[in-house]
Design a binder for these strands. Structure first.
Lengths: 130, 130
DNA sequence: TTGCATTTACGAAACTTTTCGTATATTATT
DNA sequence: AATAATATACGAAAAGTTTCGTAAATGCAA
């Protein structure tokens, strides 16, 4: 049984921060801010990032260790769960709930390598077996 | 060669209107407004829908026939193209560009019927053949 | 033709999300 | 100890999206 985490869904800007924390693990505001600025190739003010991360902490998307002066932030939202929830919302809005339409669209449009196709085939087999 | 339509990506509210027009074909504001109100099971003011559709016309997402007093609106954004573009944006933001992660996620989490699985297998075969 | 209902036009309020500036506190440097 | 650098707190501006109210035009009905 997985814990039902009733976290609010992150906004776009919040999601970008989560991606960084998921990838890098617990980090400081400064680090996250640098990563963000790099990605958008445009300087983002330090306090902008700070504010966002404070809001996210309020929303429980993040937690932080305040023992040291420089706080260390940690993603509380789980990557898989979050992606799943966002995917559902997106599919509902864009493909009117038909996950299959989306998969077909993704497979059809995307340059899919043989290896990736094999992975999917393997997954399908696994699903069929259960 | 498909015409490269450089339309802005629709917002959520705009997407809902597009869905209705894609499904029903050219329609009046009143019809769209009724459909919307039904979907959200909450009355949406007529002028709200009107305003949105006017904005969308400005953005070229829609066009309209103004010969009669009651204008008839038509979706200019093509469903497939729009879904494709939105999908790309979503995959970039949520799965960091990995369409495969998304497909795996969608297949894994979704209750997928045998028939749907067969469809996917058929599609994969088609892709492998080309 | 007079008035009633419906439509469009349009500005602006209401909300949400994002960005930033300033004040204040803490730590490091000279 | 004084100064500089860096951190957090916080309010509010800025920007984007959605909703609505009012006015003016148009067509229909009494």
């Amino acid at each position: 049984m997985s814990k039902k985490s009733n976290l609010p869904q992150p906004t776009n800007a919040e999601l970008e921060i989560l991606q960084i924390l998921w990838k890098a693990g617990p980090s400081t505001v400064r680090f996250v801010n640098e990563q963000l600025s790099e990605q958008q190739e445009k300087e983002i003010r330090y306090t902008t990032t700070l504010k966002l991360m404070q809001i996210m902490t309020e929303k429980k998307l993040l937690s932080r260790n305040t023992d040291t002066r420089t706080h260390i932030y940690l993603a509380e939202a789980v990557q898989g769960d979050t992606q799943k929830a966002l995917l559902k919302r997106f599919v509902d809005a864009t493909f009117q709930g038909s996950a299959m339409s989306l998969v077909m669209q993704a497979l059809g449009n995307h340059e899919t390598s043989q290896q990736e196709l094999d992975e999917i085939k393997a997954l399908i087999e696994k699903i069929e077996k259960r």
